[in-house]
Design a protein around this nucleic acid. Structure first.
Lengths: 148, 148
DNA sequence: ACTATATAGTCAAGCTACTTGACCACTTGG
DNA sequence: CCAAGTGGTCAAGTAGCTTGACTATATAGT
């Protein structure tokens, strides 16, 4: 494969990712959750199952723990998350989603599903599933970098 | 397709895009081009064929023309681009890549090709081409948003 | 041809999300 | 039980964006 082909593939991938991010963002806003930025989505994803510490979150997002702490401040202030004492480590705090945080997560899922459905209309359901499988196989495991 | 599946697909897509961005960025740095940020790559792509005005660039990147102008300042200062008088409009300036700018663009292409080759090792060349075709078909046409 | 409005670009100031550095509280290992 | 390590926050600085104001040139209307 030539370099220019690889570049075209890369450009398409980044364009699709950028468009998807914006679609999800708009969809979340349209569902009444204000003051949420795309970066929060990645935090929500990490907090969703059982909560996480600020340090976990920082590693997941690939930022400093100070930045992660500020992000949590903001999410707490806006009612999406709360800090609880950590059950096993008195230094740490467990950050968990509030009911509003869960609702926002569901809104993001709906918005994502909406965008993906449009891909289904263009490519067919079968191709979209194939796309998903391929992406899962090449997805990196390290921290997610929400900012370029 | 369920919402959770769409979310898994979206997460994989964003993770791949983030990883690719970082890989290209590192590859460009490793080839000796310092002080370049991922956002510059999108500017390079717009300038590459025949140059562009600051206003074109701003629309392409989805930022204000002031921000685009600052980006161009930086690229000029670092030797990647230069401003020329516009041949048809005395108000405008045509921003074009310097030789160093072209070299940096080629370095980015090489880095992208390197990353895509690794996908080829995982999925097979055939599947990677299929991935590229699918992505091209669902890629949005509007401005590219380099920041989430 | 002349005026009015629109467009290309820059300068200046402000905002915001991040960074680095310093510090305290608690935990862990010799 | 003390030394080093880890979780978290406070404070200050930075970089990349924004909004607002302005100049120079172009374009359209009469």
């Amino acid at each position: 494969m030539q370099n220019s082909e690889a570049m075209a593939l890369s450009a398409a991938l980044l364009a699709v990712a950028g468009g998807l991010t914006q679609r999800i963002h708009e969809g979340v806003l349209a569902r009444g959750f204000e003051g949420v930025r795309p970066a929060h989505g990645f935090a929500f994803a990490r907090l969703a199952p059982d909560g996480a510490t600020v340090t976990d979150l920082a590693a997941h997002l690939g930022v400093t723990k100070q930045a992660a702490s500020q992000l949590v401040d903001e999410m707490v202030r806006k009612g999406y998350a709360e800090r609880r004492p950590h059950p096993e480590d008195a230094r740490a705090r467990l950050v968990v989603l509030t009911e509003r945080g869960w609702a926002c997560t569901r809104a993001a899922e709906e918005a994502a599903a909406e965008a993906v459905r449009e891909w289904g209309a263009l490519l067919g359901e079968r191709e979209v599933r194939s796309l998903g499988r391929q992406l899962l196989r090449i997805a990196p495991h390290g921290p997610i970098r929400p900012a370029w």
